[in-house]
Design a protein around this nucleic acid. Sequence first.
DNA 1: TAGTGGTCTAGACCACTAG
DNA 2: TAGTGGTCTAGACCACTAT
Lengths: 246, 246
Amino acid sequence: MQVRVADDIRLKIETGVYQPGDQLPTLDDLAADNLVSLAVARKAIDLLRQQGLVITLQGKGTFVRKRPTARRHGIDRYAKSRWRAGRAILTAEAEAQGHNAGQLMRELAETPAPVIVAERFKIAPGTPVWVRRRTTLVDDRPNQLADSYFELSVVRGTKIQEEDTGPGGSYARLEEAGHELDEITEEWSVRMPTGPESAALRLPAGTPVVDLTRTTYDTDGRPVEVMLAVIAGDMVQMAYRFKIPD
Amino acid sequence: MQVRVADDIRLKIETGVYQPGDQLPTLDDLAADNLVSLAVARKAIDLLRQQGLVITLQGKGTFVRKRPTARRHGIDRYAKSRWRAGRAILTAEAEAQGHNAGQLMRELAETPAPVIVAERFKIAPGTPVWVRRRTTLVDDRPNQLADSYFELSVVRGTKIQEEDTGPGGSYARLEEAGHELDEITEEWSVRMPTGPESAALRLPAGTPVVDLTRTTYDTDGRPVEVMLAVIAGDMVQMAYRFKIPD
DNA sequence: TAGTGGTCTAGACCACTAG
DNA sequence: TAGTGGTCTAGACCACTAT
């Protein structure tokens, strides 16, 4: 029954009987209308919630979810011309797409290198490194938990150790420190969020996250930044363009 | 309570008290041990299931989930040398990672172009195009629903219209037809699966999917293939490497 | 047949929202 | 205060697995 009730509602959403933002019948009504118990009506709504179709608000009701417009990430966001002109990657890209961007610093400290970071820097796990943990915001909603790691010898004495890295951000500071940036690797996978992530990113139930590891290399092939990010899955779209290798 | 019970079990999984593959206490036992009702014990297990930590098998029990080893997708999988040597992209990459690969043809037909395909071919939506719908298998588990679209004028008279495209697959046939392949764009986003997708990919509860749109261009900049794929999120890891643009 | 998870009922009480 | 969703109990019955 719970599946039948859920399918019934899903159909009404897909055919536009219920529009995004509309309030659905209350659980009591759903139970009564479908001649099922309250628990079954609730279970049906749970299913739809897990599929990201509806959102429930205690004390208010159940609503058809509005899909946030995904923010598109292309490799152009790393264009040298942008940060050399003093613009931060984050804000430049967001603004180009009509969003406003911001960030909150969560931590700025020396920390033992996590395994995944150590592998990329080719150092021993636990070696002290510098980390900048930020929560990035798009249109005032948190959308990314981004932790950037740097080797101490690289950032010592630079503004990368300060909250405000200055015009052009960390990339610009790395160049000033003698590391001309050259290549980036991005690796990602997908999963469901943990409880704390779900809370920090204010994710509705049924929203996956993207785990992104970005490594930036200088022209000597040396990794100079490793960023580990957890991105809200409902707000992201990635795009890559590349030549077919030989 | 359900959260407390779930956290309790999660901790035991994370600390290795319960190992992957181990059977958890039965719902009845969990209820009794934690002094809660059966429904609450079940709810706790539901939470863990949605986070992909455990798997439930009716009649057998609840087990700590073994994470399938993700298959890694890098841009090298498109290397010309591979398919020019008669190897299919799919099998070459899987074998390199110690998996076996296969595919099932779901449909091979002329069809009206979906909007997203038409956009990339720069033709009117609904224009007839050729489609190859396959389900790809890795280690005998379905992992991808992949639909490749081609313009009719490009594939007419080629083996792309047959089930077996011959050595090197569609890419090799496109080259024989005079389209030297040059660039690829990959665009993706993440979401929870629909019911049919969940069934077709045999996804455990709490597993997201990746929507991938791949467009292949020839040296004239003409799009010659558009592939729409829905990939099981628990089996995929993507990797890209690129030069920082100017 | 015994043991497991899956679905459903009927009802109590709590937490939050809005007028 | 009335209305909404959230949590919990107690218990019935079903579906599947193993012996």
